[in-house]
């Protein structure tokens, strides 16, 4: 099966710490980045299914579309949109990391540093992103004008 798996680098093979012997394997950060890549990908795929169906209502009538799009503006769904953007952004950034591991000669050596790198970028984008996505909902909920 050819896909975006973490390559087993020589270093990763060596880093089997004796202290962990006899305990349950908890994985290298590289494994968790792969797990998160799968989960965010599946969630996004399921959302895409729903999103094409709701957008198809533009073809039914303006009223039908406007009604469904209003649910996207409710506090709970608004919060889920932040989750969606976060999931897609992680998947995008980690996808770049996977390609660098695949195609950049030094990619496998720096895979862990690149993981911390994309997590920092993710945070730097998500903080202002979440602010702009939620600012109106929050002010409306807590007595804004």
């Amino acid at each position: 099966m050819l896909e975006a798996r973490e390559p087993m680098s020589a270093e990763a093979a060596e880093v089997s710490r004796p202290s962990r012997r006899g305990t349950l394997y908890r994985g290298d950060p590289g494994m968790w980045s792969w797990v998160a890549h799968r989960i965010t990908g599946v969630l996004t795929f399921f959302f895409l299914f729903a999103h094409v169906l709701d957008t198809a209502l533009v073809r039914v009538s303006p009223q039908a579309y406007n009604e469904i799009i209003e649910t996207y503006k409710t506090p709970l769904v608004n919060l889920m949109e932040v989750g969606l953007v976060g999931a897609v952004l992680y998947h995008a950034l980690n996808g770049v990391r996977v390609m660098l591991v695949d195609f950049w000669a030094k990619g496998p050596r720096y895979q862990k540093q690149m993981l911390w790198g994309i997590l920092v970028v993710w945070l730097l984008v998500m903080v202002p992103g979440a602010y702009f996505m939620l600012v109106r909902t929050v002010t409306e909920m807590f007595g804004g004008s």
């Binding site: 303006p62 996207y72 953007v85 996505m133 109106r136």
Partner: peptide, 14 residues
Amino acid sequence: MNILDGGVHRINWG
């Protein structure tokens, strides 16, 4: 669609 210029709140049929 989600972040710029009011994000989701400005989306409607028009």
